[in-house]
């Protein structure tokens, strides 16, 4: 399997491209020379055992950490070590593993916050409620309600985020991320806490998001059944390094992946 060097794609076809990312915390190398691409309108997954460096890598993409080496390109623009809000504005939406909504804001307001970078009403026009500001507010509100409908919580638009059920909070996070009009949507363990039926429905939902909102999607996921069904391509990390990449089937049968997950002892007999 010579997939680990999936180079021949030109950058124009890539929604996001991370080249040779290395992140060091003091002496600890959390991410070591990882190259990773998200094809345009693709759905890809990043998996790996705990402590593999997935989240660190994620944080480099969203601008939370500056990589020690390497570059990140979003839709042809270099976004390495750019401030998170600028990256968000350029088209990177994300959700959080442990839900991070604005708890005392309503569902609608949560989505409206994410429209900040696409709206421009200033202090004066807000205080005077100029027509331009009123129009902008109305359009934002309409767009927000539409997004809430899209994720299936349109009726609860006026509810405080903290009062929503767990599943609805997850949906709201996705609606909020979509409000950025992202080119790339990063979902961090989106099915955590979901039951098997919900997870199964989620697979369909991810495809619908990709098709209707025309975004490229990257998931970090632990639920293998979800990963295998939803992803077009899977990348596996272990101990800060990319150990495998390919279609779900290819990855499933990769000896290094099995070792990373089950440990060497489990496969000792056949490996040596």
């Amino acid at each position: 399997m010579a997939i680990s060097a999936a180079q021949p794609v030109t950058t124009e076809d890539l929604a996001l491209s991370a080249q040779r990312i290395t992140v060091k915390f003091g002496g600890l190398v959390a991410v070591n020379d990882v190259t990773f691409d998200i094809p345009d309108k693709g759905i890809v997954s990043l998996i790996g055992p705990n402590g593999a460096g997935k989240t660190t890598f994620f944080n480099v993409l969203t601008g939370l950490y500056a990589p020690s080496a390497g570059t990140v390109t979003l839709d042809g623009q270099n976004i390495t070590a750019m401030a998170p809000h600028k990256i968000a504005k350029l088209g990177m939406g994300r959700t959080f593993q442990n839900i991070r909504l604005f708890a005392t804001m309503t569902a609608e307001e949560n989505v409206l916050v994410a429209m900040h970078s696409h709206t421009k009403a200033g202090i004066t026009s807000t205080v005077l409620r100029l027509p331009s500001q009123r129009r902008e507010e109305r359009e934002s509100s309409d767009a927000a309600l539409e997004l809430l409908d899209f994720v299936g919580i349109g009726k609860r638009y006026d509810e405080y985020a903290r009062n929503l059920s767990y599943g609805d909070q997850r949906r709201l996070e996705i609606a909020r991320a979509l409000a950025l009009r992202p080119k790339v949507l990063l979902l961090d363990e989106p099915t955590a806490g979901m039951n098997p039926q919900e997870s199964a429905a989620f697979v369909g939902f991810v495809h619908r998001v990709r098709d209707e909102k025309e975004v490229s999607i990257l998931l970090i996921e632990h639920d293998m059944s979800v990963v295998m069904r939803v992803s077009e391509r899977v990348t596996v990390m272990d101990r800060g390094e990319k150990i495998s990449e390919g279609t779900p089937d290819e990855v499933r049968n990769d000896q290094r992946v099995v070792e990373a997950y089950l440990g060497r002892t489990g496969t000792e007999g056949s490996a040596r």
């Binding site: 939370l64 809000h85 968000a88 504005k89 604005f102 804001m105 916050v113 900040h116 970078s117 696409h118």
Partner: peptide, 18 residues
């Protein structure tokens, strides 16, 4: 709304383009 978002969760606010 941006102020409120920062009060609630600064990190999430910055990730949402504030």
């Amino acid at each position: 709304r941006a102020w409120l978002a920062i009060r609630e969760d600064e990190l999430a606010a910055s990730m949402m383009g504030v």
